[in-house]
Computed example of a mutant assay.
Amino acid sequence: MSDDTRTPPKNRPRRHTLLEDTQGLLTGTTMAATGLVLLTHLGLITGQTAGLALLISYATDTSFAVVFFAVNLPFYWLGLQRIGLRFVIKTFIAVILVSGFSILFPPLMTFQTLDPIFGVALFGLLTGAGLLAIFRHGASLGGVGILALYIQDKTGFRAGLVQLGFDACVFLAAFWVLPVKAVLLSMLGALIVNLVITVNHRRDWYVAT
């Protein structure tokens, strides 16, 4: 008998409704995209696929939205194999929303003054909270996290180390594109994002799916 069969229905995690998923993904992607507006205004990057997309965007003068959408495409198949169709559909929607918002939001926000340290901290808090909302509604912003889980399944190499190694490569490459101070500030922002997620993202604190 499976664990699901033995678990009383009242104790099973409740699945989000369509309305709950909609507002959760809209809230999370809005916060993440707002964080990206702050980051790009400062000329900085972050980790994961968003960081890779920003780096390519800066180096080639290509729209972040286009690059971000494109770099995530190879990972959807892995997500389908590793996690399932529901996750892939939600992740695809989340990536589309962030890509679209990254075009829509900049004309709506102007910054006469934005201190780099404050901007980086605000980016980290906004993006971390936005990613939490996205994760808790069964989605992600694609990319490296999916690949990391796939590599862990195939080789036993820890997913967290895969992600850390990818981020290290992104920031190392950034030294050829951005000033040293910008790279160091970018690393601070990525650290804040990861701290927010590490402290707050625990399955035993939130059980809906």
Rank of each mutant, 00 (worst) to 15 (best):
residue 153 D to V: 02
residue 179 P to M: 05
residue 83 I to R: 03
residue 143 G to C: 01
residue 35 G to K: 00
residue 107 P to F: 03
residue 142 G to P: 04
residue 88 V to N: 08
residue 141 L to V: 11
residue 2 S to K: 12
residue 179 P to N: 11
residue 26 L to F: 13
residue 154 K to E: 11
residue 72 N to S: 05
residue 93 I to N: 02
residue 14 R to Q: 15
residue 174 A to Q: 06
residue 51 G to F: 03
residue 146 I to F: 04
residue 126 L to A: 05
residue 100 G to Q: 03
residue 70 A to T: 13
residue 149 L to K: 12
residue 115 D to H: 08
residue 175 F to V: 10
residue 48 Q to E: 15
residue 131 L to G: 07
residue 196 V to D: 03
residue 53 A to G: 09
residue 2 S to W: 00
residue 56 I to Y: 10
residue 129 A to H: 13
residue 110 T to A: 10
residue 179 P to Y: 08
residue 27 T to E: 08
residue 109 M to R: 14
residue 61 D to Q: 12
residue 45 I to G: 13
residue 128 G to K: 00
residue 118 F to Q: 09
residue 198 T to Y: 13
residue 49 T to N: 11
residue 167 D to P: 09
residue 111 F to W: 08
residue 83 I to V: 15
residue 202 R to N: 13
residue 1 M to R: 07
residue 19 L to N: 12
residue 172 L to Y: 09
residue 102 S to I: 02
residue 186 S to W: 07
residue 200 N to S: 14
residue 171 F to K: 08
residue 14 R to S: 14
residue 167 D to F: 01
residue 12 R to F: 14
residue 181 K to Y: 14
residue 45 I to F: 09
residue 105 F to Y: 13
residue 162 V to T: 08
residue 85 L to Y: 15
residue 31 M to D: 02
residue 160 G to P: 14
residue 67 V to K: 05
residue 148 A to R: 07
residue 153 D to I: 00
residue 10 K to C: 10
residue 96 I to A: 15
residue 31 M to H: 03
residue 182 A to V: 03
residue 52 L to N: 05
residue 55 L to C: 10
residue 78 L to T: 07
residue 26 L to E: 06
residue 196 V to A: 06
residue 137 H to E: 05
residue 113 T to Y: 15
residue 121 A to D: 03
residue 59 A to P: 13
residue 68 F to L: 08
residue 95 V to F: 02
residue 37 V to W: 01
residue 103 I to F: 09
residue 161 L to W: 14
residue 88 V to D: 06
residue 13 P to D: 00
residue 185 L to V: 07
residue 67 V to C: 02
residue 127 T to C: 06
residue 8 P to W: 08
residue 162 V to R: 04
residue 73 L to N: 06
residue 63 S to L: 10
residue 142 G to F: 00
residue 133 A to S: 14
residue 46 T to N: 11
residue 125 L to F: 15
residue 183 V to R: 05
residue 73 L to W: 07
residue 55 L to S: 11
residue 191 L to V: 15
residue 139 A to C: 05
residue 118 F to L: 14
residue 62 T to N: 01
residue 50 A to D: 15
residue 4 D to G: 10
residue 32 A to L: 09
residue 90 K to Y: 08
residue 61 D to A: 07
residue 6 R to L: 13
residue 107 P to W: 03
residue 58 Y to K: 00
residue 76 Y to M: 03
residue 115 D to F: 06
residue 60 T to A: 13
residue 60 T to V: 08
residue 2 S to R: 08
residue 44 L to W: 07
residue 124 G to T: 05
residue 172 L to P: 15
residue 63 S to D: 07
residue 96 I to P: 01
residue 61 D to G: 11
residue 161 L to S: 09
residue 26 L to V: 09
residue 138 G to Y: 03
residue 158 R to N: 14
residue 59 A to S: 15
residue 100 G to N: 08
residue 16 H to T: 06
residue 50 A to F: 00
residue 33 A to C: 06
residue 69 F to W: 13
residue 57 S to Q: 04
residue 122 L to A: 15
residue 87 F to A: 09
residue 180 V to Y: 12
residue 92 F to Q: 04
residue 144 V to I: 06
residue 106 P to N: 05
residue 20 E to V: 04
residue 57 S to E: 10
residue 96 I to K: 12
residue 37 V to Y: 06
residue 112 Q to G: 14
residue 159 A to E: 08
residue 165 G to D: 00
residue 121 A to R: 03
residue 63 S to F: 06
residue 174 A to K: 04
residue 50 A to W: 02
residue 63 S to K: 11
residue 209 T to E: 14
